[in-house]
Nucleic acid binder design. Structure first.
Length: 563
RNA sequence: GCGCCAAUAGCUCAGUUGGAUAGAGCAACUGCCUUCUAAGCAGUAGGUCGCAGGUUCGAGUCCUGCUUGGCGCGCCA
């Protein structure tokens, strides 16, 4: 904030020794006077005097006009703002910046390549798989919001053992449908476990695919298309979109890998083991840990392992260039990615930056496809939308069916996205139906509801201001509580991007929605005591809605006009 | 066994570089709809921030050890 910089300048002019020391501005607690302040402990260290002494000295400096009063509370220095001036400046800023409010524009002219989701084409995705896509999608929205040119990549694992097994299991099926694949997948895995011949046949199929057998290639391709299209449809319902699809099979025979294998060889890192496999000793490439030291790149039959193709793909992504190369991966891929980093560095390149996230767990324990205790994303979405529909029907009995359906869809999707995104990526999400389908309290619908209430006020008012015609007049703490919170939004968005934590957006949006609710209950807008106060409140409503819409947009959540 | 991540109210989670009395929601209890949508608001109750040490003027936040949970550890992807 400009204001904070001005305060810093004022202090540094009188005390040059304090230059470059970061001040921790924070809102003052309820029992103290003032709007915000900071502790003087760090200054005390530099100036070698007590923080209480410094606070009182700094209090007597002359600050910008917008600061009405300074007051010390022991080692803390607090500032009181001219609330009307502050609110007028902030709200008019929001009204003019509109959908860009909150953006620092730091990414202008920069390119980002972001890979996310990239699930195996097999069955309908369960909710655990969606966390990758949701985090990735939100990061993509964040980067775009900050001005970056973002290209979202999806790596289609269109080959590998699991496709081979699926192809065999589906051999005598005609017109296979996507929803049937889950059962086939479970069956195929069970059969491979029980019958080594079946599994061996799978690897054989894989090898023929690698050697370009047209029949096998077609069978793989057909199966992958059924799965991929089915998965993308479900992911699309959640609002996930991709710019570029890269197919693993196109990295089978890659000139870059011939070069890479030569580099590994020269560094003495590549050897053939007693089974005839091509193995990479990562320790020779600078990998420190003993676990994960060896990695098989090629099977004895000459077919390649996943890592082999992924190295080629990663090199491809690096060659495409950009100022940032990101990938969202589950915590199960942490070691794998460390290995990848070592390999890419040994080839003289900079590896992508990985964003890891933890698993979604069920209250009863882990999800397991085999044991059948999975929550499919499609089911979760159906359930959430259904739940929302029931509420909309009660609320709007006379509304046309398709409009109600659309509102229910927006609310259901919003609830799902919010529930998963609001948890810090490095923590497990504990999923239970009751909490996930709760549309009260800390939830997506609660935020949407605030937007709806604002929309309703503005609808009844008949118009909404494009710009401020006159300065705001605040008469109530609830107005100020809301307005002052809006001022921190740009900082919150920037933190969310820097820490690659979408949860900060969720917390910010909730906080604003809560403050709006307080304001809504305590400050009548349309029936305010006079026109001046009414216009101020209208402006605050417009600004609050803008901030909420921008935050929801980053979270990939829409807000209906009514709900 | 080894490595990485986590542990905050009965439950689900915030707590962004260490700072003022640790915050929400759900569940429980009490109020508030002839007044802009009650998917809401106000209030009560609920905490040795896993345990034990340490660093610091100050620790939920940093360090060490332990406990519990998640994830991983060579022909799966």
């Amino acid at each position: 904030m400009e204001l904070f910089n001005k305060i810093r300048q004022t202090i540094e002019q009188s005390y040059p020794d304090l230059k470059g020391i970061n001040i921790d501005f924070q809102p003052t607690p309820e029992n103290q006077t003032g709007d915000f302040g900071f502790p003087c402990f760090v200054y005390a260290k530099v100036l070698k005097t007590s923080p209480v002494n410094i606070a009182s000295k700094l209090a007597s400096l002359s600050y910008p006009d917008i600061i009405e009063e300074t007051k010390t509370a022991g080692p803390y220095l607090n500032f009181s703002l001219d609330r009307n001036v502050f609110a007028t400046e902030l709200v008019s800023e929001i009204l003019s910046q509109k959908e860009l409010f909150g953006s620092g524009g730091e990414g202008k002219g920069k390119r980002v390549l972001l890979e996310h989701t990239s699930i195996n084409p097999n069955a309908s995705p369960h909710i655990g798989r969606s966390r990758n896509g949701l985090i990735g999608d939100t990061l993509a929205r964040l980067f775009r919001f900050e001005g970056y040119d973002v290209n979202v990549h999806y790596y289609v694992n269109d080959m590998g053992k699991q496709i081979g097994l699926l192809v065999m299991q589906a051999e005598d099926k005609k017109d296979l449908r996507f929803h049937e694949v889950l059962d086939l997948y479970v069956e195929a895995n069970q059969r491979a476990k029980d019958d080594p011949d079946f599994e061996a046949k799978g690897f054989d199929l894989l090898m023929r695919m690698e050697h370009g057998d047209p029949e096998v290639t077609k069978a793989f391709g057909d199966m992958v298309n059924i799965c991929l299209n089915g998965q993308l449809e479900v992911l699309g319902r959640l609002g996930l979109t991709y710019d570029t699809f890269d197919r693993e099979s196109t990295f089978l025979h890659d000139a870059r890998m011939d070069e890479a294998m030569e580099v590994f060889n020269k560094q003495g890192a590549l050897f053939t083991d007693e089974h005839g496999r091509k193995v990479l000793d990562l320790q020779k490439l600078g990998y420190c840990s003993e676990e994960g030291r060896y990695i098989v790149l090629k099977r004895a039959n000459g077919s390649t392992m996943y890592m082999y193709r992924d190295i080629a793909y990663t090199l491809e992504k690096i060659e495409r260039g950009g100022d940032m190369n990101l990938i969202v991966l589950g915590e199960d891929h942490k070691m794998y990615f460390e290995q990848m980093e070592t390999i890419i560095r040994s080839l003289g390149k900079t590896p992508p930056v990985a964003v890891h996230y933890s698993y979604i767990l069920l209250k009863e324990g882990k999800m397991s496809t085999r044991q059948g205790n999975v929550v499919l994303l499609a089911d979760f979405l159906d359930e959430a939308v259904q739940h929302a529909r029931a509420k909309v029907e009660v609320q709007w009995p006379d509304m046309p069916e398709d409009e109600r359906g659309e509102i229910a869809r927006i609310i259901g999707i919003g609830a799902v996205r919010f529930a998963i995104l609001s948890v810090r990526p490095n923590r497990n999400v504990i999923f239970d139906w009751e909490t996930a389908l709760s549309f009260t309290g800390d939830s997506g619908p609660y935020i949407q509801y605030s937007c709806t209430r604002i929309a309703s006020i503005l609808r009844k008012h008949g118009s909404e201001p494009e710009t401020l015609k006159s300065p705001l007049t605040l008469t109530h703490d609830a107005e100020w509580g809301l307005v002052f919170r809006l001022a921190a939004v740009p900082q919150d968005i920037s933190s969310s991007l820097k820490l690659k934590n979408p949860g900060i957006l969720a917390t910010t949006a909730l906080d604003i929605a809560r403050r709006f609710s307080v304001f809504y209950n305590e400050c009548p807008v349309l029936s305010a005591e006079n026109e001046k106060i009414r216009d101020s409140r209208i402006a605050i409503c417009v600004a609050a809605r803008q901030a909420l819409m921008n935050l929801l947009g980053l979270l990939g959540i829409n807000a209906p006009e009514r709900m």
